[in-house]
Design a protein around this nucleic acid. Structure first.
Lengths: 190, 190
DNA sequence: GCATCTGCCTAATTCGTTTAGGCAAATAGC
DNA sequence: GCTATTTGCCTAAACGAATTAGGCAGATGC
């Protein structure tokens, strides 16, 4: 009956691990308490409620992801930076599916503004400095890349590419190739 | 106390509408029963359980989406077909957010194989006939398009583009432009 | 060594999911 | 038009998750 030593930090980190194991949706206070060897009610001193727990896991994931992207693109430019950035997303999603799902959890605007979401946007723009894009094309490109990364990784981890050849890793590199070449010859007609 | 006239069909359709109003995750049997003016338990004669309800809503959404895509791309090719296809996705997602979320619900492989998912894949390949892509590039392109459509629409409906200019509609057309030009000059290096 | 703080507890409420079994309205056979 | 059957919706009840209120005891500060 000794104390387990819970803190908000603690609980959230354990929640993130739980999410990776059983899925973000199933990372509930009840299940988390079970894992921590504690009564469910005890968690409510550290997180406000189920939504708060999920929000904190989401913020943790965004932070981790931003750290990794930041490390990966340092000193790289152009196509190198593009693949490094993209691979961080993909690797993170494959290694930490629950956290990655958490990173896509709908945050209210105020919370999102405080979190690491802004860092992501900034890094994406930094990445595009290696390509010669004026506004508004740069913004369009940011959104395209964000869409492709999120979309591909989502489909892949949902098993959408599982039952067909070639395997998804090949498509991934081919797509990065294509995006690189697209960014170099971005159509500025409109 | 007269009978409401529930059928599986009925219940699922009402569930889809509920999902559009309150979100797919919140489209629970309990809430649905409330809307239908019926006790929760009564639904269980028509759907097996909450998961079954969600699965059926997902299948309905996939079907509707496939029907619309099919109508939209008939008689079109190349860039016309591409934008028609893409706009069906986007319009559907904006008009029916709950159903669209449902369409991304993880189905077990057997169920997925029976559903309209395969029609989507076939139509996407048909769309690409307008571009000159040999295998495996065509498959890569299918996956790229799937990723972009899903990713963009997801981010947009999650409000990811809300607090920055230019507005998302402009990015959408710019991205379709870019994709069209990319498909016409697909890099076949690898 | 005492007072305080606080981490985790028990107890209780509310709500969603699900199963079992019953009654009555619709339907079909004659 | 009466009877038999189906079946749509019900009540009752079990179970589990989320959440709040309040209490005890172990850690901490003096």
């Amino acid at each position: 009956m000794g104390r387990v030593g819970l803190t908000t930090e603690n609980v959230v980190r354990a929640g993130a691990e739980l999410a990776d194991e059983v899925g973000f949706e199933q990372a509930t206070p009840a299940e988390l308490a079970r894992r921590l060897g504690v009564r469910t009610a005890s968690l409510y001193s550290h997180v406000a409620n189920a939504h708060d727990l999920k929000t904190r896991i989401a913020l943790l994931a965004l932070e981790e992801l931003a750290d990794r992207v930041s490390a990966a693109i340092a000193g790289r430019a152009g196509r190198d930076a593009l693949t490094a950035f993209a691979n961080v997303y993909r690797d993170y999603a494959l290694a930490h599916p629950g956290r990655f799902a958490a990173a896509r959890y709908r945050l209210d605007p105020a919370t999102a503004a405080t979190g690491a979401g802004v860092r992501h946007a900034r890094m994406m723009r930094a990445l595009l400095r290696g390509y010669d894009l004026a506004e508004p094309h740069r913004t369009h490109a940011v959104r395209l890349l964000g869409s492709v990364f999120a979309g591909f990784v989502d489909l892949e981890s949902a098993g959408g590419f599982e039952h067909s050849s070639p395997d998804s890793a090949q498509s991934w590199t081919a797509i990065l190739d294509a995006l690189d070449s697209l960014l170099r010859t971005w159509p500025t007609t409109s």
